[in-house]
Design a protein around this nucleic acid. Structure first.
Length: 423
RNA sequence: GUGGGCGUAGCUCAGCUGGUUAGAGCGUCGGGUUGUGGCCCCGGAGGCCGAGGGUUCAAAUCCCUCCGCUCACCCCA
């Protein structure tokens, strides 16, 4: 039996690479419009980074991390998300001292031991942005705009929906939490098993439950919006105003929640109805408590992540390769020996050239030329060597012209370069 | 971790009420043109029929176990 890749770890085959490149290029371009710098942190961190950053009692940390002991007995973990590692790096290198506002992006693989399904792999990729140092609504709005801009540039806006909510802050959230708990305790008889458990550990999460009975139960449950303190309410209102100014359409979703304590105020998701069960293609929010939690100063933060594989599902397959300029069909040893000089010269001057490594029949080489997508095919055999003129065939029009061997590479460079510049 | 669907050629699939050497389309390679691609025609290569066990004179086909893929639950981006 041949060895197969690990479950949930997928090879990215050549057909898929152009789509990924397109996503990465698009993201980089948009990031450039906002002055965001790239940071690349290791995929492997001390387990402590995620225990502290994500929360010890979350599902991610409790049962989804790739955690193991290295040869020194230290507990290490493949990153399940990017934010914790980035903040670790920012704190470690004291980057917050360089400028009052850090705008950082990163892209790369993340790892979670979940059961694979559509839009969910064990090694998956994210495009991430983190803004550290501003608690202004304009920062939240810019983060959401970034996600929206990248996604719509790539897919069009038709199937995307931005959902926004505010989670409040340490001032107002405890009140909501208390009332919600009270409400649930008096309506707990119809809640499913999971929600019974969540009620104690993480009551806000019950809003995520898909069980119909639970949802019916929650119909009159207190929602955070009615509990927001004046500052949080103003903040949310301002974020929404700015989004309108930017032309980002959105809906408020009072039940959109995050389970972790350090999340504050703005939270959002961008979902698509074309993705199956894993419908979130990007998500993020404000996390004002996190940097301090990670041992840094009390710096506010807001960020987002785009799920690359999910975006890929929306994108479909992109054009596989750039068109080739020239294919050289050389017949016989003498012609090939001559052709190698030309190939070197042409490629040095930016002309794309392919040829057959094998000494095949002209017909076979023409077929290969056709498949290569080459614009021109140069034919050189014994006859052409004798005449000191090679044949250049236009693969589209089938017209052929003769080119003297003397300055052949120079002539081809000029002809093809001129043509490419004119396109 | 739980449940459903599916595993036959590189790909998409047919064959499955058991019965000679397991098929098609696409792809690939070659020929039709002694030196000219796409279309067309002809031909070749390519399969432990997911793995193991069982029933049977006989298993791709029926039964069991395992593995894998996939979708969903769960959770999340």
């Amino acid at each position: 039996m041949a060895i197969k890749a690990v479950r949930g770890f997928k090879d990215i085959l050549p057909d898929e690479s152009p789509s990924r490149l397109k996503i990465e290029n698009c993201a980089r371009e948009v990031f450039g419009l906002c002055g965001i710098s790239e940071i690349r942190t290791p995929v492997l961190e001390k387990t402590e980074v995620f225990k502290r950053g994500i929360g010890e009692h979350t599902d991610i940390v409790e049962k989804e991390m790739y955690t193991f002991h290295d040869r020194n007995g230290e507990s290490l973990t493949l990153r399940p998300e990017a934010t914790a590692g980035i903040i670790r790096a920012v704190v470690e290198h004291k980057l917050y001292g360089k400028s009052p506002l850090l705008k950082l992006f990163t892209m790369g693989p993340m790892f979670r031991h979940e059961r694979p399904q559509k839009g969910r792999l064990r090694q998956f990729h994210q495009v991430n942005v983190e803004y550290l140092g501003s608690s202004e609504p304009a920062a939240d709005a810019e983060i959401i705009w970034l996600a929206w801009e990248i996604l719509t540039r790539l897919t069009g806006p038709d199937d995307l929906l931005v959902e926004i909510n505010s989670l409040g802050c340490p001032e107002c959230r405890p009140l909501h939490r208390k009332d919600l708990k009270f409400y649930l305790e008096n309506n707990s008889q119809d809640l499913c098993e999971d929600c019974q458990r969540r009620m104690k550990t993480n009551p806000m999460r019950i809003f995520d439950c898909k069980n119909e009975d639970c949802q019916r139960n929650l119909k009159f449950a207190p929602v955070i919006r009615h509990y927001l303190c004046p500052d949080c309410a103003t903040h949310l209102g301002y974020v929404l105003d700015i989004l309108e100014a930017y032309g980002v359409p959105f809906v408020q979703n009072a039940t959109l929640v995050r389970g972790l304590d350090y999340y504050t105020r703005t939270t959002f998701e961008i979902i698509s109805r074309n993705l199956g069960a894993q419908s979130t293609v990007a998500a993020g929010g404000r996390y004002d408590g996190l940097v301090k939690l990670m041992g840094g100063p009390d710096v506010p933060g807001v960020g987002m992540a785009i799920g690359v594989e999910r975006l890929l599902l929306l994108l479909g397959q992109q054009e596989a390769r750039q068109p080739l300029d020239l294919f050289i069909a050389a017949l016989g040893r003498d012609a090939r020996d001559e052709a190698y000089y030309w190939i070197g010269h042409l490629r040095r001057h930016g002309i794309g050239v392919e040829f057959s490594f094998e000494d095949k029949s002209l017909k076979a080489q023409m077929k290969q030329a056709d498949k290569s997508g080459a614009r021109y095919c140069l034919i050189i055999g014994e006859q052409e060597l004798d005449d000191e003129e090679a044949v250049l065939r236009d693969m589209r029009t089938r017209e052929q012209e003769k080119i003297g061997l003397d300055d052949l590479p120079e002539a081809l460079v000029e002809k093809i370069s001129k043509e490419k510049a004119g396109e």
